[in-house]
Amino acid sequence: MTKTNPGRFFEDYRLGEVIRHAVPRTLAEGERALYHALYPQRFALHSSDAFAIDCGLDGAPLDDLLVFHTVFGKTVPDISLNAVANLGYAEGRFLKPVWPGDTLRSESEVIGLKQNSNGRSGVVWVRTTGFDQNGEAVLRYVRWVMVRKRDQDAPAPETAIPELSDHVAADALAIPEDLTFDTYDFDLAGERHRASDYAIGERIDHVDGTTIEEAEHMLATRLWQNTAKVHFDATHREDGKRLIYGGHVISLARALSFNGLANAQMIVAINSGAHANPCFAGDTVRAWSEVLDRAEVAPGIAALRLRLVATRGAAFDLRGEDGKYGADVLLDLDYWALMPA
């Protein structure tokens, strides 16, 4: 009797089943230091206890995407170990800050299944929740992933595609109870732009670029305990390349967005996201943003809805005349961030 786990294949999922993922993980300042070493991250609220205390918090919470990667990584052995690709995200809400010393675990519900027409793979939709050591939800999101079949002759499940909102409503955003920007220090934050300085439809070229190295990607993927074979095993793809973890691209693009959006301090929702094209070591990633909406969500605090695009190409190039993503577009992410109103 084998004791190893080959991972789930498409035919192993059942609509409505709930999967409790191993292994809980306690986060500490070491994870923050590694996160800031991997990405050019400079947002003040996550960098400085003193800055965060001046904003009403007990200290600097851990980076929102650090929390996302940790919760996501727990799900990989059960959801995407045999994935062809992670396809997208929706309805993501950061429900409360996570602090050094908190322990996170993950749980997913299968909410959709659809076999692909080639019969060799299918798409699985899951709603994942990250919990802290007190059983309180800190993050909840939907993602869908293309997973290989073990047996091409296995019968296809009844198709069930979930209806998902195209964005999280501003009045549904979870705002940290004690957060205030009344004494916000714009000089220390790095820019003087308030939410009211951004116009809906405005586009920002974040100017800088970073070339992805194989070693950085491998360290990052191991840090989040992401065991998907496409990220580690060069023989798992026909081209002999290891696919860069999509979350690595998200964090890199978010860090690059500091130049122009330095006061977008906290991500509170991921409305939608698509990994438009695969990314590999050696690619140079640049980023640009578009302002989609703005809402005041608490006294002196605004939420800016932003489209963040990571690309190997020119700023503001997104889709071709056929409506499809351009070949250089790596990421199209729609999210809400908090900043001084």
Rank of each mutant, 00 (worst) to 15 (best):
T2S: 15
T2D: 13
K3Q: 13
N5G: 00
N5E: 10
R8L: 13
E11W: 05
E11C: 08
G16R: 12
E17R: 10
I19L: 15
R20F: 01
A22M: 07
V23W: 11
P24Q: 09
L27R: 07
L27A: 07
A28Q: 02
A28N: 14
R32Q: 12
A33F: 11
Y39M: 15
R42T: 07
R42S: 13
L45T: 04
L45N: 01
L45P: 01
S47Y: 07
S47H: 06
A52L: 10
A52G: 10
I53A: 11
I53W: 02
D54I: 02
D54F: 03
A60F: 00
A60G: 03
A60I: 02
P61V: 09
D63T: 10
L65W: 13
L66N: 06
F68R: 02
H69W: 00
H69A: 14
V71L: 04
K74Y: 01
T75L: 01
D78E: 15
S80G: 15
N82R: 09
N82W: 12
A83T: 13
V84T: 14
A90H: 02
A90M: 00
E91L: 00
R93E: 14
P97Y: 08
W99E: 05
P100S: 14
G112R: 03
L113V: 12
V124I: 15
R127F: 02
G130I: 00
E136G: 04
E136V: 12
L139F: 15
R143K: 14
V147N: 00
R148P: 01
R148I: 01
K149D: 01
K149P: 04
D151E: 12
A156K: 11
T159D: 14
A160H: 14
E163C: 04
E163F: 00
A169M: 10
A169N: 12
A169W: 02
D171Y: 11
L173N: 05
A174F: 04
A174G: 01
I175F: 11
I175L: 13
P176D: 03
E177V: 14
L179E: 09
F181P: 05
L188W: 04
L188S: 08
A189V: 04
A189L: 04
E191H: 10
R194Q: 11
Y198D: 07
A199G: 02
I204M: 07
I204W: 03
I204V: 15
H206G: 11
H206I: 08
V207H: 14
E213L: 13
E216T: 06
L219R: 15
L219Y: 03
T221C: 08
R222K: 11
L223E: 11
W224K: 06
N226G: 05
V230G: 00
V230N: 06
D233S: 06
T235Q: 12
R237Y: 02
R237M: 06
G240W: 09
G240A: 11
L243A: 00
Y245D: 13
G247T: 02
I250A: 09
R254C: 04
L256C: 07
I267V: 15
I267S: 02
V268E: 12
A269I: 06
S272K: 10
A274C: 06
H275S: 08
F280A: 03
A281P: 04
A281Y: 05
G282Q: 09
G282R: 08
G282D: 07
T284W: 04
W288L: 07
A295C: 09
I301N: 07
R305G: 04
A310S: 12
G313Q: 09
A315Y: 10
L318M: 09
D322L: 09
D322E: 08
Y325G: 05
Y325I: 03
L330G: 00
P340S: 10
